Structures are given as structure tokens and as C-alpha cells.
Computed example of a mutant assay.
Amino acid sequence: MADLSHRKAEAKVQIKGADGKALANTKVHINQINHEFLFGCGAFETLSYTNGTPNATQEDRMQKWLGLFNYGTLPFYWGGFEPEEGSPHTEQLMAAAKFLKSKDVTVKGHPLCWHTGCVPWLMNYDNKTILEKQLARIHRDVGNFKGVIDMWDVINEVVIMPIYDKYDNAITRICKELGRVGLVKKVFDAAQESNPDGIFLINDFNLSTNYEILIDGCLNAGVPIKKIGLQSHQHQGVWSYEKTEEILSRFEHFGLPIHFTENTIVAGPLVDPSLDDLQDAHYDDDAATPELEQKQADDLEKMYRNLFENHPLVTAITNWDFGDGAWLNAPSGVIRKDGSLKPSYKALHHLIKEEWHTEYDAETDAEGYVKVSGFKGKYEITSRTETIKYTLK
């Protein structure tokens, strides 16, 4: 049996009635309603759900999403967010973010600076102006969403950024000029200035020693990195336990919380390992089989168990695709294209909502105190007459 003490806590809580008097010797029901640990998923489809009146299919998918996850990533890719300079899609993203927050979902914006998906109009400017506009974008968006979105992937895939040669882009240009650490410091400082209490991540798919060296250099330069983001798109092979442990051993030594920001395990054939860029991959519509769907569920469960049970510094896991076909047409979601639940959804639901869930009956003592003991997170404590909310941390 795994030792889950690092995921649990206990506290004595006094229960009072509406008159302010302690409810002594009273039966109460203690039920966890949210985890402190961030069980996340890409929440891109929230944009269409909140843009007008959702249809029955959208409503069904959204309720299934909310039935499993407490943490959502929304897309702020600059090319899609502000295709016309000066006209960002702030209202659309704000509606989605506020909806998720109203459901007690923690929201993260992704990403503020990235060479891929960058706006073409930025290429009209010289490097000095490109940097100024990039920093102004961060000040604007982090400031506008403060209090709704307080967590951001500030910069994405910096290891490859200055040597990216698939096509010319403005961010690679300024990264070449400033250097990796130089650019990272400028964009993180801008985010920190805009929201001093914000949580800011660096994020990368390149989990080699190069990423370690980059993080070390950034921390030594005073970059306010709050959490380390590790991408784990496993289209070309599911990570072995040994590979996961080796990667974590290299990033845990920084002592910072670790987020698995983009996790993908596919219920389909593996992509050719020799393919350098996953963007070039594509799956056939019938790639999934019942056997591969079950393997996806088994592999996801093993990974979540290891990260949640054995690695205290891991504080979030984001399953990148909610539904099949979202990226590369891959069968990588936890629901199928028709909205039906896959074995992977059921496996994660069992872990998050059942096995790692706290719920029990208790009774207050003579002074109205009851011990709340279980997984860290938010609780409802209900008596015959009162319901109070309490956060166990």
C-alpha cells in the first residue's frame, strides 16, 4: 500500500450554528469536494461552450469534463488570440475562464511567449519593437486576467527556440539576439510585474540536460520561475517507469513544484520514432481499437499512480486532449468523438473521485470540534442544520 501522507493532512474544525454557538455532540458528514492536487485537462472546447447557448452535445461533453477535472488550460496562442493587431479575443477567453472558475476549476493560460503559432504581423517590426510588443502583450493579458487566471505558461519550448528553422518567426529572431536566459528573464519579469502573486511556469518538451542547464541559468539570473513544466506527449512510445524516474530525478533537484503540463497517451498505433516533429504526424479515423483503448487506460493509471503516490513535488498533471481527434486526429482523449466514455476516463475517475477521495461520517465533541482527516483539498462538513466549507492543507 502506497504511503500517501504527503497528499494528506488533518485538522480540528469547530462547527457552529447560525446563532454562532458550537454544535456539540452533533453528527456530521465530511465530504471532499475538490482536490488540492491539480488534475487537469486541455479546456479549449470551453470557448465554444461559452460562446452562445450550448447545444445538447456541448452540454454533455462539458459536464463530463467537469465530472473529472479541477484544472483547465486555455489557449492564448498569440496567432489565434490576436490575429489582427490591437484586437485580441479577450472577451471570448474571459467568458471561458470565468465559467471554469465559477465551477471551482483552476485555470491556466498557455502560452504568453512561443515561436510556434506566433502572429504574422509581428514580422513587420524590427527586433527592438518585437520585444517591446511581446512584453506589452504580457503586461496586458496577465493584467487583464488577474484574479481569473493567475497561472501562466510564460514561455514555451525555449530549448529549441533560437535554433528553430522550420519557418522564420519574430520570437526566434529576438531569442537569437537576447539568448535563451535573456529572453526568459524579460518575459518572466513582465509577468511578475503584472501580477506579483501569479504562478509562472517555464514549459518544454525537450527534457534533456539542455533544459536542466537552461532552468539553472534562469534561476541563477533571478528569473521568478514558480513551477517547472514538463511535457509528456507519448505518441512515439509510452514512457517506462525507469524513464519517468530518470527524468524526475533530474528536475526534482531544483526543489520546485513540477507540473506535467501536456500529457498524451494514445489509444492507437505509435508514431514513427524517427519523426522529428510531432506536428507532422496524423492518425487515421479508425486508428483506435478496444484493445488499444484499454492499454491507454492501463498506461494512464500507472503513470498517475506513480506521480501522485511517489513524487511529492509533482503537483499537477494535465491530460492534454479531452476528446479524441483534438490534435493530429489522434485517439488521445478520455472520451471518443461521439462523446462516449473511454476506459481511460473511467480509470481516472476511479482514482480521482473514488480511491483518492475522502468521505465519512463523524461526530463533534462537547465543544463542537470534529477532526477532518484526508486528502488535501476543499471539504463540505454537513450537519442536520448547517453546511460549512473548509480547506484542508
Rank of each mutant, 00 (worst) to 15 (best):
A267C: 09
L256R: 06
S274C: 11
G229P: 00
L219W: 05
L275Q: 15
E262K: 03
F251L: 07
Q234E: 15
H282P: 05
I228R: 04
I213T: 15
T244C: 10
I247Y: 05
D285Q: 10
I265R: 02
G237K: 10
E242M: 09
E212W: 12
Q236N: 12
S232A: 14
E242G: 06
C218E: 08
F251T: 06
H233P: 00
K295L: 13
E212N: 13
K243V: 08
S240G: 07
E212P: 01
L207C: 07
Q236P: 03
Q279I: 07
T289I: 04
V266P: 03
Q279C: 11
F251M: 08
G268T: 05
A267H: 03
D284M: 06
G222S: 12
A281N: 10
P290T: 08
A267I: 03
D272R: 07
Y241M: 13
F254K: 02
K243Q: 14
A267Y: 05
V223N: 04
D286Q: 10
H233C: 01
I258W: 06
L248M: 11
D284L: 08
H233G: 02
G217H: 10
C218K: 03
L248F: 08
I213A: 15
C218P: 00
T261S: 11
T261V: 00
P224L: 04
H233K: 02
Q231K: 01
I228G: 00
T264C: 04
H259F: 13
D277W: 14
E252F: 04
V266Q: 01
G255K: 02
A267P: 02
P273L: 06
H282F: 11
N210P: 01
E242D: 14
E291C: 06
R250P: 05
R250M: 10
L278A: 00
V238Y: 13
D286G: 02
S232F: 03
P257I: 04
G268L: 03
G217C: 12
D280K: 14
L270C: 06
T289A: 09
R250Q: 14
A288M: 03
P224D: 11
D280R: 12
S240R: 05
D285M: 03
E246N: 13
D284V: 01
K295Y: 08
Y211I: 07
S208P: 01
L256N: 05
E262I: 04
E293N: 13
K226N: 15
V223G: 03
G268Q: 00
D277L: 10
P269M: 05
E252I: 05
E262D: 09
A281V: 11
Y283E: 01
T289K: 12
G255C: 10
V223C: 11
P290I: 02
Q234F: 00
Q294R: 12
P257E: 05
T264Y: 03
C218M: 12
L230I: 10
S240H: 07
D286N: 15
F251G: 04
P290A: 12
C218S: 13
S208W: 12
